[in-house]
Structure formats: structure tokens, C-alpha cells
């Protein structure tokens, strides 16, 4: 009889979480940081150019804008959606803003219109997903193709050279504050803001509920359709922001920009812990995923590995990361 008395006693509620270092060890982010540091260490020996200021700057510039896209994608994945159109919508943002600028509109106003248009595209997709009931995958696949077509239509397939962009506009893509590029500052602002909101605000907690179990969320009084509509829209808005920054950085609008970018962004989010089934993911993890993929790319370039190998290697990293995670999750369960 005393064995049952014991059972009732030992298991009852305890509010204590596992010790901090143990939680740290279990976190996906910790593993990614270790891998990134390891790569850093190896590369600093493997290539004399790696640890130069110029290379560090080039590398961080490379992942910074993609980082903004991955924020939107991660939030959308957590809510249970996916967006294949990020590459072409980013290009479209660039092209529309560039085209408006060339038509004589102030570049800031043109950027505003362009970002608003991207928001509209997101709302359009959100409408098809939540009201008509189509799958994110199909809707965004269609929009991916349409947006790319629109890019080519506006530009006639040629990049728009924006040589007359005022310097203060180019500053957001090319300028620095002290030694730090503005792009990095913008990136950090977005990442820190969204990471904080995702962790702490009630608004974004509802994104987790919706993605984890949409029906249970509805039965908890959460307007799941609204949540999905908003995450879909947010992802496209951030594409607009990223497109404008790219435009300022390149001083041109390229209709073929970002081909295949959606896959890199989704891969980064998934490496960082986002689940395609929704309900899990973190901004920090996803950013580390972008950094890892970008680090690998530039390392391979520095080591003179053929461009063709790079995709093979990046794909393999994605598969390895997801496989390892699958087994870790299984062991935990």
C-alpha cells in the first residue's frame, strides 16, 4: 500500500524547470553555435583570407538581408504555413520600387508603395488560404510564378540601373555607422525585435498555438484564420523590406534576383528548429541557420570549390541537420 502513497506524492506538480545549463545543452541553438564556431576555427586555418575584416564584412552583409526574410518565414512556419514566393516577391519589391523611381517618384515614396504592394500580395495569399481554403504550398507556388512574371514584364527582362538614386537612400544598403554596415544594424533591429516578440508577446504566442494544433487553438477561442492571414501577410511585407534594402545596396533592380532563394530561407528556418508541421521554431535558431548556410557558402568559395558543389553540400547539410534533430527529438520523447 505504501508504494501508491509514494506515487501520489512524488509526481505532483513541480514548478521548477531543469537546471539552466541542462536546458542550454538541450537547446537547438547551442548545437548550431558550436558547429558555426567549429567551422570558424577550421576556416581560419584553412584560408588566410577568412579572418580578414573584408571577408567578415562581406559575409555578414550576405546573410543580413536574408536574415530579415528568414524572420518572416520562421513565423509563418510556426503558424503552420509555408511561402515559396519569397524569392520572387523580394525581386518584385525591388523592381516595382526601381520602376517607380525611374518614373520620377521619390525613392522613399516608391519604397513605401512597393512594400505596401508586397503586403497586398501577402494579404492576397492569406485570403486564398484562409477564406477559400487552399494550401499555402499551392497558393505561394502560383504567386511565386506570377510575381516572377511580373518582374520580367516591368523590366523587359533587363536589370534596371538606378544610377541616380540619392546617396542618402543608398546609405541604407551601403552605408556604415563607424565600422558597422547599416544593413547589419537593420538586421539586428529586426531580429532582436521579432525574437523578443515571439518569445514574450501574447500576440505571437497565438501563432504557436495555431501552428501546434489549429483546432485546439480554435477551441481555445483563438481566431486561427486571422493568425494565419497575418503571418502570411507579414512574411510578404518583410520580403518588401528586404527587396528595398537589396535595391539600395546594389543600386539596381534585378528581375531575376533571388531565384531559388525561398529554398535557402526555408532550409535555414528548418535547420534552426522550425517544423514544417507548425508549432515550433525560433528566430535565433533560424538566424543561426542562415549564418551557417552563408558561412558554408563563403568557405567553399574561399577554398575554390566549384559553385556546382556548393548546392550539393548545402542540401546535404539540410538533410543532416533535420535527421539529427529528428533523432534527438525521438530520444527526448
Amino acid at each position: 500500500m505504501d508504494s501508491t502513497a509514494n506515487l501520489a506524492g512524488e509526481g505532483t506538480v513541480s514548478a521548477e524547470a531543469a537546471p539552466f545549463y541542462k536546458r542550454l545543452l538541450r537547446m537547438r541553438e547551442t548545437g548550431l553555435i558550436v558547429i558555426i564556431l567549429g567551422l570558424f576555427f577550421i576556416m581560419s586555418f584553412a584560408s588566410p583570407y577568412f579572418l580578414t575584416w573584408a571577408n567578415m564584412r562581406a559575409m555578414s552583409m550576405a546573410f543580413a538581408v536574408d536574415g530579415i526574410l528568414v524572420v518572416g518565414m520562421t513565423i509563418l512556419l510556426i503558424s503552420g504555413g509555408i511561402d515559396l514566393s519569397v524569392g520572387s516577391v523580394t525581386a518584385l519589391a525591388m523592381v516595382i520600387a526601381g520602376w517607380l523611381f525611374l518614373s520620377g517618384i521619390d525613392p522613399w515614396v516608391a519604397s513605401g508603395i512597393s512594400i505596401a504592394l508586397c503586403t497586398g500580395i501577402g494579404a492576397f495569399m492569406g485570403f486564398f488560404v484562409t477564406r477559400i481554403g487552399l494550401h499555402h504550398f499551392i497558393v505561394s507556388l502560383a504567386v511565386m510564378v506570377i510575381a516572377r512574371g511580373a518582374c520580367l514584364l516591368f523590366t523587359g527582362g533587363r536589370p534596371l540601373g538606378l544610377y541616380t538614386l540619392p546617396p542618402e537612400f543608398k546609405f541604407i544598403g551601403q552605408g556604415t555607422i563607424g565600422p558597422i554596415p547599416i544593413v547589419i544594424v537593420i538586421f539586428l533591429v529586426f531580429v532582436i525585435a521579432f525574437d523578443f516578440m515571439l518569445r514574450r508577446t501574447t500576440m505571437f504566442r497565438k501563432v504557436f498555438y495555431t501552428g501546434s494544433n489549429e483546432k485546439a487553438a480554435a477551441y481555445s477561442g483563438i481566431r486561427t484564420k486571422k493568425v494565419i492571414f497575418l503571418t502570411t501577410t507579414l512574411c510578404s511585407t518583410l520580403c518588401g523590406v528586404a527587396g528595398i534594402i537589396y535595391m539600395a545596396r546594389f543600386g539596381s533592380a534585378q528581375p531575376t534576383f533571388g531565384l531559388g532563394l525561398e529554398l535557402t530561407i526555408i532550409a535555414a528556418a528548418v535547420i534552426g528548429g522550425a517544423s514544417l508541421n507548425g508549432g515550433s521554431g525560433s528566430i535565433l535558431g533560424a538566424i543561426l541557420g542562415v549564418i551557417l548556410l552563408s558561412l558554408v557558402s563563403s568557405s567553399l568559395a574561399l577554398l575554390d570549390v566549384s559553385v556546382y558543389w556548393q548546392d550539393i553540400i548545402r542540401g546535404s547539410i539540410l538533410l543532416a541537420a533535420v535527421t539529427i534533430d529528428h533523432y534527438l527529438n525521438k530520444r527526448r520523447a
Partner: peptide, 16 residues
Amino acid sequence: GDGVFLDLPIAANISA
């Protein structure tokens, strides 16, 4: 199916 969020923490379920 629709009562709890299986993969979310207990506390986050209760507060939903």
C-alpha cells in the same frame, strides 16, 4: 485532436 496542444509545454496549454 482538439483539446490540448500536445507538443507545447503544460503551462502554455493552461494559459491559452
